[in-house]
């Protein structure tokens, strides 16, 4: 296996819930990410999938330290980010960039495209005005726009073009890793395909590593090398895309995959319909957090938290059925 870029170990983020009593320490918390461990290797795309509220986006923000974890370690190229001061973190963030979901909200409408793309360069004091301008034009061409777009404003662009601008901005500092938080969910299918192709091209060209967060299982299957399935703040299964889609092990992964709509009108799909909704992350069920909706739940699922079990080289699953 190649070099580990990001290593996450037993990462937890609990957001305290403020109670109505002032000065009283809050006793309850939302367990958004609750003990997650994984590694991301250089040049790969790791997908993170799960239903809304399972902690995907919190995880993204923990990795580049936009929020500090409650517990656990994030290592970037062997450096423990939790021990670094804010200055050092800022310089590390040059290497960890993000692309967000909503291209309509993530760009400042009052600034020109040139300003927006050069902003990361200015923040990190790279180059002078002239060289930055050159870099902006270069970046615009890399993402399939043209140099003359630099003087325009955000409202002049469509959703797909805006996402290209976001990608150009993320590339500005030559990052090692880009965290894409639902980058194509807000786009139409035909435009979605354009942006996905662009992301793939850039990965090849600049040797990028991606963490790709999405709830669209078809997109994730197509773009990712390995996929982690999250449920209520925990990873329940992780493996290569072939392993996960051809041979899913965890009952939740199976249900998630069976919920993908048909691919053609003649498709006869066996569907595992999950009952109810995701439980509240304030009081996740004891034991396996999936046991309330699991069709295979056994008595000890309600008590014991399942540990990760290795199945073959890369596939791991946290389920009592396999322990």
């Amino acid at each position: 296996m190649s070099e580990v870029v990001i290593k996450v170990e037993n990462l937890k983020k609990h957001f305290p819930i403020n109670e109505a009593v002032p000065f009283k320490k809050s006793t309850q918390s939302v367990k958004a990410v609750d003990g997650v461990s994984f590694e991301v290797y250089k040049g790969e795309t790791l997908g993170i999938v799960g239903e809304s509220g399972c902690g995907k986006s919190t995880m993204a923000r923990l990795i580049n330290q936009l929020i500090r974890p409650t517990e656990g370690v994030v290592e970037f190229k062997g450096k423990n980010l939790a021990t670094l001061g804010s200055k050092e973190i800022r310089s590390i963030r040059k290497s960890i960039q993000m692309v967000f979901q909503n291209p309509y909200a993530s760009l400042d409408p009052r600034k020109t495209i040139e300003y927006l793309i050069a902003e990361p360069l200015a923040i990190h004091h790279i180059g002078d005005a002239k060289s930055r301008k050159k870099r902006v034009i270069e970046l615009l061409e890399v993402v399939g726009l043209s140099g003359y777009h630099a003087e325009r404003y955000v409202h002049e662009f469509s959703g797909g073009q805006r996402q290209r601008i976001n990608i150009a901005r993320a590339l500005a500092l030559n990052p090692d890793i880009i965290i894409c938080d639902e980058p194509v969910s807000a786009l139409d299918v035909s435009v979605q395909a354009q942006v996905i192709n662009l992301l793939k091209d850039l990965q090849r060209k600049f040797d990028l590593t991606y963490i790709f967060i999405s709830h669209d299982l078809n997109v994730v299957r197509y773009i990712c090398d390995r996929i982690a399935v999250m449920y209520l703040g925990k990873i329940v299964e992780i493996g290569t895309y072939e392993e996960l889609y051809e041979n899913p092990k965890h009952p939740y992964t199976k249900a998630l995959l069976s919920a993908i709509p048909k691919e053609n009108p003649f498709d006869k799909k066996e569907r595992i319909l999950l009952e109810g909704d995701v439980p509240s992350p304030v009081n996740p069920p004891p034991g396996c957090s999936f046991h309330k909706r699991c069709p295979h739940a056994m008595e000890h699922c309600k008590k014991d938290v399942p540990a990760f079990v290795d199945l073959g080289e890369t596939q791991k699953v946290a389920c009592h059925l396999y322990s």
Binding site: A193, Q194, N218, R221, Y222, E263
Partner: peptide, 18 residues
């Protein structure tokens, strides 16, 4: 064509309407 299905090979270039 631009719909991603399970027959779309991972790593293949995705058809997109320009």
């Amino acid at each position: 064509e631009s719909q991603i299905t399970k027959n779309t090979l991972n790593g293949d270039k995705l058809p997109a309407i320009p």
